[in-house]
Design a protein around this nucleic acid. Structure first.
Lengths: 334, 334
DNA sequence: CTGTTAGCGCTTTCAC
DNA sequence: GTGAAAGCGCTAACAG
């Protein structure tokens, strides 16, 4: 199926020049006459020469690869971030390794280690579930790091996030304005930084309105439909007086929608449901979801640009990008 | 942020043995006493040694990376395939490069070329939009290839697909059974192999029922909601007598659902809508979508296993896997 | 069981 | 402008 690979030496032999001349020609370096460059280039093309990035990387000590670590690429939030990352990386001639952690901290450490062995030029780590110490440990060997949806005490890494606390505030203020007082919260995974921040925004906004949410109206859930359905059902059964439910993300909110249907509670008449992220699905379900828009694609793009700047040694400027969420009011909480 | 990388030589110096002994120790090769292995391993750990896969690849002429090329990772079909690929690759200790082609053949060739330069051990190419010649050309330099959703005349590459023609047959037979005679078809992208196969199934099944679909009740569309909406609106405006619409995939079917709403046509009472793939969204929209289930995750897994077998030189057995689609009847075409 | 030698394909450095 | 030499970090092959 495949014959032996063509190397610089093969091209050099064919062109009857030295290896170095071929290297200069194909890399468009100067110190070579335009005539020979063209001649060599055409021979290289004819032979089907493709530079070996692995050989090049070994000598330059620098790859053109980056690692993208997400919880789950099938989650629309991450697949959209990934699309932004891939696009920006393509534009900058980087290739992207995609890794899923599946909410498993062991696996997160594993993929980070294997990326290190691949000698990626940098890594974009989304929604890390590692504790600060463990995280610091695995990241310290990386030349460049951008964290998405996670902010660390030490500001040594680039970060891209949405203002989760403000997003939660927007949601709760909206619900308060509509007269809701008993507002439950599906808080997302326990180890989720965004979840913690949104919880903070939820609590603070309610408290400024003189309302103290009780612990049992806040429940953790996984960021998927099934978990949202299950946890929402439990919560709404235990606390039937709740008139609104703020959900960690749109997927869990869709699950909550189902739970309401099962419990015979009409949305939005009996209970209002709000999600987070504004994935395409949010506009497509019935009733359509009120949610907080996160610019997922741009976040992926920005994370990549930031990472590449850091790879190139620009460690200072705009290393911490925060996007402002925007409330999108739809049918589930008009 | 990062000090100089620890190499085999560093560990060798520290352990006062030769480089080879360290190599044997960390790679669990034999020809070394258990005592020294342990001693060396602990020194390697203490120093934070991580083997350089780029150096290893250069000498072994074999990387532990594979390329995954899809049209659009944000499309739930591909993101689910990708999840299956990533999982199987992780289990086999391979890393995955993710590339989007965005329906652009130039870009498809570009990413395939860059993957070649990365010296991937193999590539999984999903839904290629290249012509057979061009495709053959870019793939001939690869040590191992698995094609998803595309079958070539020459059987030299591994393939994983769903039986598109049979899927279309299932859909059309279902619609015929429900009394539909005037059935439109959103055929997907012109260059889509699956689209062509589904068109074949659509035509043949109608013809066996004595119905000849006219060309204008078949229209190409992109596999996304917006395009489905637009093309369905045109089609249903031009051919208002259609009582059913078979759509290339679930996303375009959701678009068709919107078009019907805009045109004041009730689904399924005035018109039946059927999709393809059975992405999670299909069950979540209202009305829920009747569709053909494709085992996306398993397809990704199988493609990866097949690829790895081929990388390891097993070119024969089960090189062509075909999954049978299953009709999932929901509200949009009961 | 352990070490030495050679070399993977390329770029960097320096010489012509 | 062009070329020769050295070496990136590692492993295969062979020697002890």
């Amino acid at each position: 199926m495949m014959s032996k690979r063509v190397t610089l030496a093969d091209v050099a032999r064919e062109a009857e020049v030295s290896l170095m001349t071929v290297s200069r020609a194909v890399n468009n370096k100067d110190g070579i006459s335009e005539a020979t460059r063209q001649r060599i280039q055409s021979i290289a093309d004819r032979l089907g020469y493709r530079p070996s990035l692995v050989a090049r990387s070994l000598v330059t000590d620098r790859t053109s690869t980056i690692g993208l670590v997400v919880i789950d690429n099938a989650n629309p939030f991450f697949s959209e971030v990934a699309r932004g990352v891939e696009h920006a990386a393509y534009d900058a001639s980087y290739s992207v390794f995609l890794c899923n952690t599946e909410e498993d901290t062991q696996r997160e450490q594993d993929v980070l280690r294997s990326l290190e062995e691949q000698r990626v030029a940098g890594v974009i780590l989304c929604s890390s579930r590692l504790e600060e110490d463990a995280l610091h440990d695995v990241l310290k060997n990386y030349p460049a790091v951008v964290l998405v949806n996670r902010i660390l005490g030490s500001k040594e890494h680039g970060t891209v996030s949405i203002d989760d606390q403000y997003g939660a505030q927007l949601v709760i203020e909206h619900l308060l304005r509509r007269g809701h007082r008993a507002i439950g919260f599906l808080a997302g995974p326990e180890r989720s930084y965004s979840g913690q921040q949104r919880a903070k925004g939820y609590r603070m906004t309610l408290e400024s309105a003189g309302i103290s949410p009780t612990p049992d109206q806040i429940r953790h859930c996984l960021p998927i439909v099934e978990s949202g359905r299950e946890v929402a059902r439990e919560l709404l059964s235990a606390r039937p007086e709740l008139t609104a439910l703020f959900c960690y993300n749109d997927l869990s909110a869709v699950g909550a929608l189902h739970a309401c249907a099962q419990l015979g509670r009409r949305v939005p008449d009996d209970i209002a449901i709000v999600g987070f992220d504004d994935i395409p699905l949010a506009a497509l379900v019935t009733p359509s979801l009120t949610t907080c828009h996160a610019p997922m694609y741009e976040m992926g793009q920005e994370a990549t640009c930031l990472l590449i700047e850091r790879i190139n040694g620009c460690l200072e400027e705009c290393a911490h990008i925060s996007f402002q969420p925007e409330l999108v009011i739809r049918e589930s909480a008009p």
